[in-house]
Simulated scan of single mutants.
Amino acid sequence: MPKISPDDYIVNSSISLKDRKTLVQLDEDEKVEKQLRKLRKKLGKLQDTLYAHGKYAVLICIQGMDTAGKDSMIKEVFKDFNTSGLIVHSFKVPTPLELDHDYLWRHYIALPARGKFAIFNRTHYENVLVTRVHPSYILGENQPGIHTVKDVNDAFWDRRFEEIKNFEKHLADNGTIIFKFFLHLSKEEQKNRLLRRLNIEDKHWKFSPGDLKERKLWDKYQVVYEDALNRTSAKHAPWFTIPADNKPSARYIVASILYQALKGYSDIKEPPLDDDIRARLEEYKAELNNE
């Protein structure tokens, strides 16, 4: 199986989503899944070290169109994590309480503590993606100076992008390692996955008629996604476009990018044992053995 190079997927210059692959098949699915099982065990051990080190937090942001594989990505890549050090947040339509605060509030309170991982399944970028396709949603935020959809203009979006970039820069400056993954799905594959939800009875619960309404806006979503990726990918908070038409390969690519990047932090180590405790190890062993 080919070695994964994060440089093949990172957004480090202006990109066109049309030029980015939606399908990469690294090998036969069974072989890729076998390699993923090995890799996620390594990620699990690395998580233990980061938890013991206690100086960094990790924020993993996952975005993508409906059926892109966000839920199964989380389930399969992080299966060997200690759940006490992993928090998953799925951001849906804002609640009345959330709308009583600024749009980033619900994301701030979900951030990981040092030593922990947090996964945002849909993220703070919903505030420049879904709301940009449906600007009327902004009116529900009850913001000063926003009275009609006409007030949600280019200047409004420019300001919001700057706020999001400042939010991420603040996090990175204070010890949060940020990864942002866009699961890049083809329209044809989304059709196949929606049909699967309709054809298989135990998948019916996943289907919503709203998925079809949003599918009609596919081209608009591609434009706003591309703009968001280009505006907000930074060295301290990079975006990666992950070909999502083949789920096993997509999962392995994400796991490999995470592992390679985190292994690059040479200062993430288990803390050394206190000198006094180390000097008395044999004494403590004897105490326990002589009970």
Rank of each mutant, 00 (worst) to 15 (best):
P2N: 13
I10R: 14
I10E: 01
I10Y: 08
V11T: 08
V24P: 05
E33I: 10
E33T: 10
E33A: 10
K34S: 13
R40G: 03
R40Y: 12
K41V: 15
K41R: 15
K42G: 06
D48W: 10
D48T: 12
T49Y: 00
L50N: 09
A52D: 13
G54E: 05
K55E: 14
A57R: 04
K70M: 08
S72N: 12
E76T: 11
G85N: 09
L86H: 04
V93A: 15
V93Y: 05
L104K: 06
R106C: 11
N121D: 15
H124K: 13
E126A: 13
V128N: 02
V130D: 05
L139A: 08
E141N: 13
K150L: 11
D154H: 09
F156N: 11
F161N: 10
F161E: 10
E162N: 11
F167L: 10
D173P: 02
N174V: 00
N174F: 04
I177W: 08
I177R: 03
F179H: 13
E189C: 07
L195V: 12
L195C: 03
L195E: 14
R196L: 12
N199D: 11
H204G: 02
H204P: 00
W205P: 04
K206A: 06
D211S: 02
E214C: 03
D219P: 04
Y221L: 02
L229M: 01
L229V: 06
T232A: 07
S233A: 01
F240I: 09
I242Y: 09
N246E: 09
N246L: 02
N246C: 09
P248I: 04
A250Q: 12
Y252M: 04
L258S: 08
Y259H: 14
K263P: 00
Y265E: 01
Y265N: 03
Y265D: 01
E270G: 04
E270R: 15
P271H: 05
L273P: 04
D274I: 05
D276E: 14
R278K: 15
R280L: 10
R280W: 00
K285R: 15
A286K: 15
